[in-house]
Simulated scan of single mutants.
Amino acid sequence: MPRRSYDHYCAASRALDVVGDRWSLLVVRELCSGPRRYSDLFADLPGISTDILAARLKDLERDGILTRQRVGPRASTAVYELTPAGAALRPVLEALSDWGTTLLGDRRPTDAVRPHWFALPLGRLIAERLGTGTATVHIGDTVFHVTVDPGGITHRDGPAAAPDAELHFDLPTATAVATGALSLGDATTEVRWP
């Protein structure tokens, strides 16, 4: 199927031609923390249908945003990973996260939530506090680490090998910090800073 286009000679329009479809940027958000299998993406994108996920992955691969590799016995499992062009969308997601934080309000009963979705807003707050370095973040059973260096902020699944800081939150506390209702410094006593 040919790609739909706004047909505007505008950089924002061209960018939206590639990542403006519903779910596309959320697929990129999921891949910011590292490679994912199809089943992982499907589990962490509640509400997406298998047909839409397959279509978005195909479109994003065609447009050079992600790659698909076959792994496992007889190369039976597909793993998706961002390309450099896809990873370059992280600042876009950070800006959307910053802008959208004020829109969160109270969590509705129908709202899905995954602890790793807080990596973007927490990453910004960690960068403000840490300057440069690495912090391991625990939100319940979910663990990821945030790296801050001159190239920007990144996050990956799992703990850092030798973190400069370690933070432990429950989900309500992580939510309060991410939304600004609670400062990072006041969030927990289980924080180790350099």
Rank of each mutant, 00 (worst) to 15 (best):
M1L: 09
R4G: 13
R4W: 13
S5A: 12
D7A: 15
Y9V: 11
C10G: 11
A12N: 09
S13M: 04
S13I: 07
V19Q: 13
G20R: 10
G20N: 05
D21A: 10
S24I: 05
V28C: 03
R29V: 05
C32F: 07
S33M: 03
R37V: 05
Y38V: 01
S39V: 12
F42I: 01
F42K: 14
F42Y: 12
A43S: 09
D44M: 15
I48V: 15
D51P: 11
D51S: 15
A55C: 11
K58A: 11
L60C: 07
L60G: 08
E61P: 12
I65Q: 11
T67D: 06
R68N: 03
V71D: 00
A78V: 00
E81K: 07
A88N: 03
L89S: 00
E94T: 15
E94V: 15
E94W: 13
L96G: 12
S97T: 15
W99Y: 10
L103W: 09
L104Q: 02
L104T: 06
G105F: 00
D106Q: 11
A112L: 01
A112H: 10
A112N: 02
R114P: 00
P115D: 04
P115K: 13
W117Q: 01
F118W: 10
P121W: 00
I126L: 09
L130K: 03
T136K: 04
T136V: 10
T136F: 05
V137T: 04
H138L: 06
T142M: 08
V143E: 00
G152K: 13
T154P: 11
T154H: 12
A160C: 03
A161L: 13
E166R: 12
F169N: 03
T173Q: 10
A174V: 08
A176K: 10
V177T: 05
V177K: 09
A178Y: 02
A178S: 15
T179F: 04
G180Y: 02
G180V: 00
L182N: 04
S183Q: 04
G185W: 03
D186A: 15
A187H: 02
P194M: 03
P194Y: 12
